[in-house]
Design a protein around this nucleic acid. Structure first.
Lengths: 218, 218, 218, 218
DNA sequence: AATGAATGAGACTTCATTCAT
DNA sequence: AATGAATGAAGTCTCATTCAT
């Protein structure tokens, strides 16, 4: 797979417009590593500076505060993980061709797409999960992205497949969305965050998860 | 329901054998509140002392370190949440009478039991979720309780219902456990941690969740 | 030798007039041990209480402050080590029978007597040496005992042996005292404090030290 | 005498290679003063900071711990006092020209050399003496320097003068070394540490001390 | 006489941030 | 842009001492 992770992408982009100095890239890398390992609050800027091979002051030349540094790391993850569930190019990939795509195919595309994303950005997701409950800036980002962008799209999709008879009409839309997302996200988090060290038969688990949702909602 | 939450229970018990001084109870209460709100690392012992109306030194008379205080809060939650999934008295409630109990009834007992537990201990669970990834002491507690006690019981149960034809034999036991637990825990966490402020029709959601699992695994 | 060390002596005496409770004796023992090992300032009263198997408050029932405890340990050592050099019963042993005793015999009695004393009270002496420079109460004790009691006796003795021709009249009395005491005390401290773990041929060293002083002052 | 003390020397050296910031020099000065007066354990870092006119945090930028600060003060004293007894340039001064130098001359050079050193560094020596028995790091420094460097040289010298007939062959080498060093160091400590406020006729005391040793070992 | 919970001052140390270079 | 010395507030923890029981 030739897709890069978010950090690489960020660095790549900024090489072109030189919006990111090499030291800054090192700082981001070091911060991500350390935040993931010890949590934001227990990571000191001096440790980041050390690991990045940079003077302590240099961090603050690029990020006004430590929290700025966190947000600059976490924000793109929120928007790229949550939004893309239904936005931009992704929408086309997943939903626009909905006429000729079965429900099963939609689930598969959706799951595999996010599976790959998290696979490439596990560390970032770990930070996000750890910090989201402690910083309302992040929560607001979440709400904004989810409520305004993801949720309405999902409603649309669920209703369509209810009409097509692939999802039971006896179940409320909200509940269906909850069960579906819980199962998808639960799988991904179990796979990459909770038990990353277990041997996984990914293909099998993905298929079983899809079947589980389909049968469960029928 | 006249069941108490863990803290009350602890205080009640210790009133009888006076293993907990009144100040110590205040400290626990204050610590729980603050840890849940700001996270362990961002909570200062002086803030806890203030909120508890106690001198800062008093905290350290009862808990050798701040981390000890955290663990004394979190450990019982792990053991009471994770172990009891299948241990002691609970086992009898849920599994022992399995001959005359249907799979559906088992799921309902299981879900409602843990639903009530979390309902009474939301704050404690919030702390646990926030800190588990940052403290390997907690992780070890988890592993021990889950791997040694919960997991084997689950295997047993899944296999039994596969034999009875209520769960498909095409699905691997581990995968079935994962899907089932993901859905159960995902529901509880969504209900109490992620979106506690939404109006919930608990009875409906519980029934739908049970149905979803049953149909999904059939 | 059936002489006891100072602590035993203190305990023994107080058993008769019950001036020292058993707990108090334990406290003294624990304090001596710990002061010697870590120094007064780095020893906490709670550590002493622990080691003595006593509640923290108990120490302060017997000794108003931690410093009181130190002084109650160190004072008898000063008076018994420094004063006795020339006081009380000891004076009779060592000096009163000076008519028929040679200078060599005097040195031997003196050295062996103090040698035995330190041998029985090494721990106490260690504490004294460590703390003397930091507490002026102890220094004053020292000065009082040495200047008023030890020194004048020494002057007397030195002059006598200068008259008898065993000590050179070319050397000032003060200087002779200094050289003599430095050598005696230097030996004892080297023997018991600085290098207690080396194998010592005590008899030989004592004789050589006496010879060294005699020849050096002749 | 235009020789500086160790602290001045350290500051001077570091001005050239700027290895010591001005604040750091102030910290050292303040620490030395206060350690000597109250002892290491009873000196607080805040007191040092105050006296140095520096923020408390500044101390820890330069010395990781309070103990580091102590060792950075004490280590050079050990190596410069103990090692140089017989090392480097000093060896040449004192021993190398031994063919034409009498035993008396050697003693005089040795004593006067160390006398001057302590005269210039009394405060540092006071700290060393106070702390040596409480910190095994310092003890190890001592052992290393004394056993490996000073002691073998002394053996050599004593044996040489035994052969030349200036020291009695009846006395064991170790005992001779002990008596000699005890007398030398005893004098210096009495002069500068125990009774620095008395009027001393240094020239006289030095000569008498040398004579005492020579006659005592003959 | 003895306990041990409680205290509050103060210990050492960390840390995000600033600023002169 | 980068440095790193300096800061001072705040953090965790220790400690001698008190007091109700």
């Amino acid at each position: 797979m030739n897709e890069k992770d978010l950090l690489e992408e960020l660095i790549k982009v900024s090489e072109e417009d030189s919006s990111l100095t090499p030291k800054q890239a090192k700082i981001l890398q070091a911060a991500i590593e350390t935040f993931a390992e010890k949590g934001y609050a227990s990571t000191s800027t001096s440790e980041i500076a050390n690991k990045a091979g940079v003077a302590e002051g240099t961090i603050f030349r690029h990020y006004k505060t430590k929290k700025d540094l966190l947000l600059s790391i976490v924000s793109p993850v929120v928007t790229k993980f949550a939004i893309p569930f239904f936005a931009d190019r992704f929408v086309q990939d997943v939903f626009e061709n909905k006429t000729n795509e079965s429900y099963e195919e939609l689930l598969r595309t959706l799951l595999m797409n996010r599976f790959e994303f998290v696979n490439r950005n596990t560390t970032l997701l770990r930070i996000l999960l750890q910090e989201v409950s402690l910083h309302k800036e992040i929560q607001e980002l979440f709400q904004k992205n989810f409520l305004e962008k993801v949720y309405p799209k999902f409603v649309e999709v669920i209703e369509e497949y209810q009409n097509k008879g692939e999802i039971s009409k006896d179940i409320r839309v909200d509940t269906a969305i909850r069960l579906m997302m819980t199962t998808l996200i639960g799988f991904i988090i179990t796979r990459f965050i909770i038990m990353p060290d277990v041997e996984w038969d990914d293909e099998y688990e993905i298929e079983q998860t899809i079947t589980f949702i389909r049968k469960g909602l029928r």
